[in-house]
Structures are given as C-alpha cells and as structure tokens.
Design a protein around this nucleic acid. Structure first.
Lengths: 224, 224
DNA sequence: GGGATGCTTCGATGAGGATCGAACTATGCG
DNA sequence: CGCATAGTTCGATCCTCATCGAAGCATCCC
C-alpha cells in the first residue's frame, strides 16, 4: 500500500480542471504569465495563483521572473510526455465522437508538442528517419546512427551528442497512437521548420499549418 | 478554457491514492479481484468497489467475470503507458528519499500480498524457482514444469493441477518492481512458512518477519 | 514620490467526494 | 435448500480543497 513514487500526488495535480487547462495551454511550449493562465483556465487570479503554487510545489512547472512578469512553463519534456499520454487516454476513452472541426483536423496533421512536432507529419518523419537508418530504433529508445550527425549538420542542425538532454526520445502521439521524435533533435527540427517558414503556428492553438511549398520542402528533406 | 479531451477527468481518476495503488498493482498485467485490490489499496471492500466502478466508468479498466470472481485488469497498453509516464514524473520530481521506518524496511523484505508472500524475499524465490526450472516463465504467465509436482510434494505441498484457481500467477511487487509468485502455489508456500514458524506476521501490518533460523531454512528450501 | 499593473496571501464559504458499517444481492458448494 | 464467499448499494459522516473578494506586496513608469 505504501509506494515509492507518489503517483497519486502528481496525477491529482493534473486532475483538477483549472490546472489541467493551464497545463494544456502550456503544451504549446511558450511560457505564459499568471493572468493569461487564469484566463485559459477560466478562474480568477487568486485561484490561478493558488493553482500555480501547487503545480510549482509538485515540480511540474518552472518559473522565469522577468521584472514584474513571471513566466510559467512546463518543467520539461518528461512532464510534456506525461500530459500527452493522459491526453491520449482521454481521447481513446472519451465518447468524444464529435465531428472534428477544422482546428482538430489541423492538429492531427501537425501540432506543437512542448518543443517539437507531433501529429501525422511527425510520425511519418520518424518512420522515414528510421527507414533511412539515420536513427536506430530499439524498443522505446532511439539512438543516432553514425551517419546522422553529418547528415543533420548538412541541414544546418548541429547535434551536441554530449549534452545532458537526450538527443532523441520517443513521444507517443495521441492522434496516431504511434511515436514521434522528441528530444533535442526533435526540438531543433521544429525550430528549422519555423525558421524556414515552411509552416506557421496557428494563433491560440497548438496546430502547425504547413504552406504548400513548405510541406513539399519538409517532405523532401525529412520524408524522403 | 477551450474544449478538448477531458484530461482532468482521467487524471483525477489516477489522482486518488487508493485508486493509484490499485492501478499500480495492476501494472503487472495480471488481473486481480476486488478484494485483492482492496488490500493493495488499504481500503475496505465497499470503498474499493466504489473506486472500481469509477475506474470502469472512466474506461481505465476491463472486467472479466469468471464465476463469482470478477477479475479487473488495465484497459490496455495505452493506459499502462500513461501510468508509466506518471510514475516517471513522480520519480523524477519526488526525490523524496525519506528514510524508511523499520516497518517499511520489513515490508520491503517480506510481506503478505493477499494470501501469498511479496517483497524481496518473494521476488528472489520466484527467480530461483525459475532458475531451477521448477517453474517455467513465459511473459506474464507462469507454468509448472513436469518435475514441480513431485518436488513440492516432497516439501509437503500438494499441488492440485486441476483446481479452478490458477496454481501460479505473477504478481508485480511495488517495492522491487518485479514479479513474485501468487496463485495457489504462492498461497501454499506462505502457509508453509507460517506453519513451520519460519516467520510470523507483524501485528496490524502486512509485514512478515523471518526468524534467523527460519530465514536460513526458507533460503535453503526455496532459494537454493 | 505617486500611481498603475501584476501577483500573492488571507479568510470565509461551500461542494464534492472518500470513507466505512450495515444491509442487500449474486454466485457457488454440498 | 442452507451456508459461505464475493461484491454492490445505501446512508451518514467527515474532510479536503476549489473558489472568490478584499487587502497586502512587489515592480515598473513617469
């Protein structure tokens, strides 16, 4: 009955609607200030403040103070991965057989997951990278192949193999039920997609919309 | 406050300590009946029953009725994955290396899990029985080897291979996170341990404390 | 300094839900 | 059938925690 990690504590942090909305809003990867999060969650500022302290205490958020602004963000990819996993289950069990709106359709194709790409495009990309033996997939782990570093360098993506942060991680995709690429490399690829203007972020949403030309380029480079 | 999958609902299901313990107990992949889960969670049967309905409603569990037994199991790998993700965060975030009390230490070594032994001793025992090819382990299933019946008979443990109750079952150990032996054989072994006075049950606790001599005997017989 | 903005703390309120004992239902055993 | 085991439902209790208004800090700008 006594247990090592206190999973109930973590889960109950996510288990309040107001806090869940805040975390969901932070899944976009951008840090937000308390009043924005209060708005997202639909609660008053004092209430939001109380929730944010709890999330901080629970280690789910990080805080960056800049003057009188205090930016809250997800504590890390692991937290983001957990929330994606919960979203996945909620999607699967939810009687949400509502006809998906255009926003939802766009989200399925490509969206931001914390700091990297998720959705059909991202899943297809990981498949292709593994097919081309640039990445080596073993169970739930993903490693770089010897040729990967130079290959990505040619695309303008420098990989620091010795960084503390794992370069590659598998992250389960709720819309496709298969993994996509997270980690430093996943983040770098998203950066490139935005920097090259292959796609833009939809306002107030996690959706990522590719331009026709951008999609072509992306597929040429990552889905060859 | 945008609409999405109801992640708060799912998370709050996991966010209650009793339910979290139940789910954790089910992480081994073995289905358990309500009374076993009540024990695991440390709550009364009515309370457990109420929690189980909620988990069923939430779609986190499946139910397989077999006679008057109702076996609850995780609804699928996606649910298991979500729980793993939550455990991961809880472990990362809660370096709550609280010094375990003596009771906790004893519980880690050996305790009762419903009607059989759990804890380090029990996990080691299953390892040894498999090593000695008395039991055959295949994934999450455990079967008797041909030589097992006579071997255990020599120890005074009669195995009824045709009983309705499964003779062997794997049961995940929360302290070690590996399986130990449940089922009729597991129960019979616990009976023997108590009958031979190798160990006694701690009052008001699930801890099982071996005497020095008893431990020696137990290890000779089951950990050879 | 004084005013404006962003946020936290305090205190009171209220609702949800976790819990258990007791009673009830269901299934199996002989 | 009667007894035993497994499980659910009901009712009452209790406690946590989410909520908000008001007031208190903190920071910035002029």
């Amino acid at each position: 009955m006594r247990e090592g990690p206190d999973i109930a504590r973590i889960a109950s942090l996510v288990g309040d609607p107001a806090r869940a909305n805040m975390l969901n809003a932070l899944m976009g990867g951008t840090a937000l200030i308390a009043s924005e999060l209060a708005l997202e969650a639909g609660v008053s500022l004092p209430t939001a403040s109380s929730h944010l302290s709890k999330l901080m205490d629970g280690g789910l958020l990080t805080l960056a103070s800049q003057g009188r602004h205090r930016y809250y963000g997800l504590a890390g990819p692991q937290v983001a991965g957990m929330i994606e996993a919960i979203i996945g289950v909620a999607e699967a069990v939810g009687p949400k057989r509502v006809r998906p709106g255009p926003r939802d359709a766009a989200m399925r194709v490509a969206r931001v997951c914390y700091d990297h790409l998720a959705g059909e495009q991202a899943v297809a990309m990981l498949d292709s990278l593994v097919d081309r033996k640039l990445l080596l997939r073993e169970e739930n782990e993903i490693r770089l192949s010897p040729s990967a570093i130079s290959h990505f360098a040619a695309l303008g993506i420098e990989i620091d193999d010795k960084a503390r942060r794992p370069v590659c991680r598998a992250c389960l995709d709720w819309s496709v039920r298969r993994s996509h690429l997270a980690g430093a490399l996943g983040a770098a690829i998203l950066d490139k997609v935005i920097a090259e203007k292959w796609a833009r972020r939809e306002k107030d949403s996690r959706a990522v919309v590719f331009s026709p030309k951008g999609k072509q380029e992306f597929e040429r480079v990552f889905l060859a």
